Simulated scan of single mutants.
Amino acid sequence: MAQRTWFITGISSGFGRHMTEQLLERGDRVAGTVRNLDVVDDLKEKYGDLLWVAHLDVTDTPAIYTVVNRAFDQLGTIDVVVSNAGYGLIGAAEELTDEQITHQINTNLVGSIQLVRASLPHLRAQGGGRIIQLSTVGGQAAFAGGSLYHATKWGIEGFIEAVRQEVAPFHIGVTIVEPGGARTNFRHHSIKLASRMEAYDISPAAQARKIVEDKTAVSIGDPAKMAAIMIDSVDQHPAPKRIALGSDCYQVIHQALTGRLQELEAQEELAYSTDFPKEG
């Protein structure tokens, strides 16, 4: 298997860490970004020059361009760019502060958009490559208590769908990955809770808070298996448009899409009724 070079944001934990460990173990090079350089000292010590690490906060757009440009300049060709960094924000829309809203959007949506934009000139210049965008089951279905998180994930999926079409002539493949629940530390370390408003105790939004606060809950998904599928997807041609991972993800997305299709089909006559009459 030919050695590839990967650029992955957020390799300190979760899927980013799993992907990085598997890639380094098989001999690929990884350019990884973290907010705290010390957290990957063990990987740097074990794999040496195979791991290139840079500090990056994806809410800092100029820094994204600086780090991406430096990675391509120093490593040459980068075959795969993985947009992984992000976090969850849970709370009813009214419970969120303006600062929380801005930071969630800047991290999950704007940061991912700018990472792709920063990478595209390099991928075009080298004649192609792959982009993998981490989304979630929450990029196709929505639950009370996750309004801003869903806004960022539905937003990035729309962006990526359009970009996928725009860059196809340049031999750049683009894939959206939609994992369900996985046994990473995401739920307990990468989810932020809004301040509770008593009025919402009777709202379905309160259930999302309870799920996050339940420290005994165990997700069904195996993150190592999921990471391996993401890695293997780069060998598929053309690049898969979407990859759903986890039985919970499949069931939830299937139900959401089926319901939306039924609602659309019920409005077929209404939709057509707004057209101008056909001439002739």
Rank of each mutant, 00 (worst) to 15 (best):
I191V: 14
N36C: 06
F15Q: 01
Q133Y: 09
I211P: 07
P121A: 01
T5E: 01
R209G: 05
A182H: 14
D73V: 08
L75Y: 12
Y250G: 00
L261F: 11
E94G: 05
V80T: 07
A54E: 06
W154K: 13
G32T: 03
K241Q: 10
E95W: 10
W52F: 13
M197T: 11
L109T: 10
E94L: 04
S233R: 01
Q22G: 04
G173Q: 05
L148M: 10
E161K: 15
T61L: 04
A125C: 01
R4T: 00
D235C: 02
I211E: 11
D222N: 15
H122Y: 06
D49G: 00
I64R: 14
C249A: 15
A228Q: 15
M19N: 02
Q133K: 08
G139I: 05
T107S: 06
S135E: 09
Q255M: 02
Y47R: 12
D49H: 04
E157S: 09
A239C: 01
M197D: 13
N106S: 07
G259T: 05
N69R: 13
F159D: 03
N36Y: 11
L115I: 14
I172D: 04
T184P: 08
V252G: 00
T102M: 08
G88Y: 09
E45H: 09
N108S: 12
L37A: 11
E166A: 07
Y250S: 02
K46P: 01
E21N: 09
D222I: 07
S195L: 04
D73K: 15
L245K: 09
A54D: 01
V81Y: 08
T20N: 12
G10R: 08
T5N: 06
R130V: 01
Q3T: 14
Q251Y: 04
A205P: 05
N69Q: 13
R260S: 09
I243E: 02
P62K: 08
A151K: 03
V234F: 02
A144L: 12
A244L: 15
R17Y: 11
I131H: 02
V67K: 12
R29S: 03
T5H: 05
G173T: 06
G158C: 05
G27R: 03
A205W: 09
D248C: 07
N185E: 11
V234H: 04
N69S: 14
S219M: 15
S219Y: 15
Q165M: 10
S135M: 08
G221Q: 05
T184Q: 13
H188F: 03
Q262V: 00
A266K: 01
N106Y: 08
A2G: 04
R70S: 10
L50D: 14
A144F: 15
S135V: 03
D79L: 09
H18E: 14
G86Q: 08
K225D: 00
G86W: 06
H188K: 10
G158D: 03
I113L: 12
A162K: 10
